[in-house]
Design a protein around this nucleic acid. Structure first.
Length: 268
DNA sequence: CGAATCACCTGATCGC
DNA sequence: TGCGATCAGGTGATTC
């Protein structure tokens, strides 16, 4: 579920909640794997160490320690939430750690597409060597990044090796805002359209963050609250409904295996 | 090598 | 009401 806005919000929430630096006091594990094996033994060795900072890269949450980094990816349905001694374990609570007495940060993930990794800080750049630009932080030129790419523009926007953080919802929303057809090959997107897309990437992602992200189903922020941005979606999930701009019917079609929504009249 | 497909998993929804 | 098919915010692994 979570794309850049949702992961950014969770990262900010977790920072507020645990207020680094804090010492890791205890781990609880309720299964041995999520998408990948949970490095339980190595995580337990971190007890007594301080989390110095919580940050985000692409759709990954990074708990930074002195020499190591705990990487958390939420997959489609992962969430972190704060619990205390009243914590009643839910079916899909898979692990937790405490950072002061009576507090647990709990990871819940029904589909278990999320994962937890532990790596040396020095390995971060090689771990993320396939990740592209941060759309809200980096300077980049979308035209030069994508103009040689054969794939449809929507597929390319979702490919994390070019630009990170854009997933299936925001790819459709960004292309509607930029008035570009999701089916159009990157090679045929005009310079002006690339400019528009680049502007809309920032605008849409920032608006989504300001509105608490998109909660279609599972997404909750670090305080267990839903986002509001789904109420502002222009095309995602609106198949056969009227385009807010021209009134014609919103199209839907699978593209690279992902449902894609657009207005064939407004987007060229 | 890049591109396409598969795999991972639970749960909600839809058609019959 | 029940049941199988389909689909859901992602990405690493495998295959072509």
């Amino acid at each position: 579920m979570p794309e850049l806005p949702e992961v950014e919000i969770v990262t900010q929430n977790l920072t507020q909640i645990i207020q680094p630096p804090v010492v890791i006091k205890q781990w609880k594990f309720f299964r041995k794997d999520l998408r990948f094996t949970i490095p339980q033994a190595r995580l337990k060795k971190l007890i007594g160490q301080k989390i110095l900072k919580i940050s985000r890269r692409a759709k990954y949450i990074l708990f930074e320690l002195a020499d190591e980094v705990i990487i958390s990816h939420l997959g489609m349905t992962g969430s972190w939430r704060l619990e205390n001694s009243d914590w009643k374990k839910r079916t899909h609570d898979h692990l937790a750690f405490s950072f002061k007495s009576d507090n647990f940060l709990v990871y819940e993930d029904p589909r278990r597409f999320g994962f937890i990794e532990l790596i040396q800080k020095s390995q971060l750049s090689s771990r993320f060597k396939n990740l592209g630009y941060e759309p809200l932080a980096d300077n980049y030129n979308l035209n030069s990044v994508l103009k040689e790419v054969k794939a449809p523009i929507k597929t390319a926007l979702m490919n994390q090796k070019y630009i990170v953080g854009i997933g299936n919802i925001y790819a459709s929303e960004i292309l509607f805002a930029a008035r570009v057809s999701p089916l159009k090959s990157c090679m045929r997107v005009s310079d002006q359209q690339y400019q528009n897309i680049q502007v809309e990437i920032k605008k849409i992602l920032n608006q989504a963050i300001q509105n608490g992200g998109s909660s279609i189903d599972n997404y909750r922020n670090g305080y267990g609250e839903k986002g509001d941005y789904q109420t502002q979606h222009q095309v995602y999930g609106r198949e056969s409904e009227a385009c807010f701009s021209c009134g014609r019917s919103i199209q839907s079609q699978a593209l690279s295996g992902r449902s894609t929504f657009w207005c064939a009249h407004c987007q060229k």
